[in-house]
């Protein structure tokens, strides 16, 4: 594993370690502050847990919002988005990779253009659509704008194009229909890309704030980010960093655990799908 006698190896190891620590600093800060007593702000020479380790910040943060609902909603939100996205990006990705039809290039460009439009610019339009559909203030409203994914379409198109055409032809000769070809040829080969896409999709929607905030107003259908916003807003009267950090850790915990559990799988997927 680690060859300590090799200076070049040790240098790399030190550099990576230093970089890792720098990247971890915000997280370390959050953990320290969340367990510190509220009345003892971080100051010069006093940056660790303070006089005692306390769970008060977590209790206070927990009382500020119906977190149980928020967890349920965030999970439904990311799962509901991902489940539909998998279907749409698979279909569209295959169509753009393998089918020839009039206007294919133009359509692809139109879909990619979507990547360049900031979500905020579409807020009012999307809101109008959701309202017309009668879905304002429902969990459907959270998910619906994300059911198509330009990034996912592009990713699956590139991945499917990398699958040798001979595989599909061989399956067809064996009598497989399109659905069977997808199931036994394309999808298994694209599994790393799916996993990478799932991670990107889950983490970005888990962190989505503005849209859920605007399109809902009942606490019971709002996701975690909107609950966290309550803690953030108290800074108007003086920053309660302890509560804020406790809330932040509560919100990111599921993602952190998910990543730790599937860390190797994710890294492999990112490596093999060429994503960064």
């Amino acid at each position: 594993m680690r060859n300590t006698g090799d200076t070049a190896g040790r240098g790399t190891w030190l550099l990576t370690g230093a970089a890792a620590i720098i990247w971890m600093l915000p997280l370390i800060f959050a953990v320290l502050v969340s367990f510190r007593p509220q009345a003892e702000p971080v100051s010069i020479g006093n940056i660790f847990f303070g006089s005692r380790i306390t769970l008060d910040n977590y209790a206070a943060a927990w009382n500020i919002a119906p977190w149980g609902w928020h967890y349920v909603n965030s999970i439904l939100f990311v799962v509901g988005v991902l489940a539909v996205q998998i279907v749409t990006v698979t279909m569209a990705g295959y169509a753009f990779a393998r089918l020839r039809f009039a206007g294919r290039g133009l359509l692809l460009v139109l879909i990619l253009l979507q990547l360049m439009i900031p979500t905020a610019a579409l807020l009012a339009q999307n809101f109008a659509t959701i309202r017309t559909l009668g879905l304002y203030d429902t969990r459907w409203a959270l998910m619906m704008p994300y059911w198509g994914s330009a990034f996912g379409v592009l990713l699956m198109r590139q991945t499917f194009r990398g699958v040798p055409l001979e595989f599909e032809e061989a399956a067809r000769i064996d009598g497989a229909n399109w659905w069977q070809i997808m199931r036994s040829v394309y999808i298994p080969l694209a599994l790393p890309a799916y996993i990478a896409f799932a991670l990107v999709s889950i983490s970005s929607h888990w962190n989505e704030f503005l849209w859920p905030f605007i399109v809902t107003r009942t606490e019971e259908v709002r996701p975690l980010t909107v609950g966290l916003n309550k803690l953030y807003s108290t800074t108007e009267l003086g920053a309660l960093y302890g509560q804020l950090m406790a809330g932040t850790l509560m919100v990111i915990a599921p993602l952190v655990v998910l990543f730790m559990l599937f860390q190797r799988r994710f890294l492999e997927s990112f490596a093999s799908s060429g994503l960064k």
């Binding site: 009012a124 109008a128 309202r131 304002y136 605007i214």
Partner: peptide
Amino acid sequence: AGSYTQTRDTIQTELNGGG
């Protein structure tokens, strides 16, 4: 509805979107 700014943005979006 969040901070003053967020509340104003929410109201503006709702009214612009026909809400």
